[in-house]
Design a protein around this nucleic acid. Structure first.
Lengths: 272, 272
DNA sequence: GGTCAGGTTCCATATATCGGAATCTTTGGT
DNA sequence: ACCAAAGATTCCGATATATGGAACCTGACC
């Protein structure tokens, strides 16, 4: 239970983003809620919130009880959520591949993408082993000290890579973090030749990762696939033994992406 | 498959509503989509759409593939949808009651609310019998010719009721529709005394309904519960035989509402 | 009938949106 | 290598919208 003082003002710089943040707060409510309650929870001014809720109500996203002061989720909002989850076979298929990979190698695995100069965790399946690193989907990690980050860097044009690394500056996290530009450049060159990358305690002490990219014949890939394990259970050699399984999974994910792209093209063509 | 010409411009009078409408379109996509594709589908101008998608992307609601032109649903959007559906035990509980009622009486039932002077279908469970009226949640029906509508009218103050009925004017749908104000007033008086209401082919020919309200000791109720059946299988007498089951279900729904309200109050108190 | 806790409305100001047009970028063809 | 053509992105002034403090309602309770 959070107290009023801990509550953060709804972040967001545009009205649209504020609205989405409000929806997230509403989504977490399992009961009726009131204008006043929302004011206390979000820190937004009362008239502002009143207007937003009113718009949501007239759109059918919310509905009010007879007393006029308790809101609850409307059928349109529910339908939106259902539609979002139902029409997401791409994610579902990717997730299934991930799960199978975790089964095979026995360690936590995740799917990553490059977003805004950082590595973004798209999805993750945890190992069943009791000792784990807890890293959740949606979190971000610097490019220069993650296995998939180095792969993304390796497929960039040198100028593009230099620009990005200059902007971000190489922060050090452990004593293995590569902060010397030349050493990093050499590592990236090696990664490009190999087609896979390690993160050997470069970001978190005790965490070893190995990653590959989902191959994309039409250009750079924005889908990385990694195994992450505590060094207690994992060495570079063991990781290399998992490489074939990892590459097989990456190929499957690439196939899913290809299919989704061609389906999209088809749909567009059908609309003409 | 819809053609370009059939596509309707995204409805909505405020930017917020337009954004929600856009989200609904996106929710229905099971693959990657492009700016251009969205332009064709929604009819919105390209720069406008570009801005909206950009905002959604920087919020983490969407993500782009490496090619920079294909979007897909982001993890934050997925989490939003999951949260919406997970935290909705109120609806879930209501729905369960509804389903049980349908089992008992063997006919389609629905939950309604008064919204903007009309009866709104909140939820509906269909009978398994092959002959059915197809009426979906979210649709609206005039108050004066629906069973739950008449119940909502019956609990209003006379002045309030007169104002509402004046504004709406009594449209006729079948030869049973009550369009004479005095006849309607008499019917409403009877409904108040009985505590239940019929709709005997007053809205759709061949459709008979019986409804009650979920009792609310603290004031007027905004939750109606109705059985709807084709006259092929239903008479007033048969409907009356279902009344006890209907009232039992209504009481259960009232209990769910009460609980949700008190939980909400509790949560608010805990935040102090 | 007075008080108080919400809810609602007002309104001058600040801000975001809008979208046609221009511009940049990528793609595909020769 | 070059050149369209399609698509993405940026610009920007006119316009519509959001903003939120303050004032105003409303109903519940004493």
């Amino acid at each position: 239970m959070t107290t009023k003082s801990e509550m953060s003002r709804l972040e967001g710089d545009t009205p649209a983003q504020r609205l989405l943040a409000l929806l997230e707060v509403i989504a977490g409510k399992d009961q009726f809620f009131t204008l006043q309650g929302m004011v206390e929870e979000t820190g937004l001014p009362k008239p502002t919130l009143h207007r937003m809720l009113q718009q949501l109500e007239t759109s059918g996203m919310l509905q009010r009880e007879a007393d006029g002061r308790h809101y609850s989720k409307g059928s349109r909002l529910r339908r939106l959520a259902e539609s979002l989850l139902l029409n997401d076979t791409v994610h579902g298929a990717r997730h299934a591949v991930l799960r199978k990979l975790v089964d095979e190698v026995g360690e936590s695995c995740n799917i990553t993408a490059l977003s805004g100069g950082e590595v973004l965790y798209l999805d993750r399946v945890e190992t069943s082993a009791p000792l784990r690193f807890y890293l959740h989907p949606g979190s971000r990690v610097p490019v220069h000290c993650s296995a998939s980050g180095k792969l993304f860097l390796a497929q960039m044009a040198p100028a593009q890579r230099r620009r990005l690394l200059n902007e971000l500056s190489l922060e050090s996290f452990t004593r293995n973090t590569l902060i010397d530009p030349e050493a990093l450049e050499a590592e990236i060159e090696a990664v490009r030749r190999q087609g896979y990358a390690f993160d050997d305690e470069e970001f978190l002490p005790g965490l070893l990762c190995i990653a590959v990219l989902a191959p994309n014949p039409d250009g750079p890939s924005n889908t990385g696939l990694a195994i992450q394990a505590p060094i207690m259970r994992m060495t570079r050699d063991k990781a290399l033994a998992c490489l074939p399984a990892l590459q097989r999974a990456a190929e499957q994910i690439a196939a899913i992406n290809r299919e989704a792209l061609s389906d999209a093209a088809q749909a567009a063509a059908g609309d003409r």
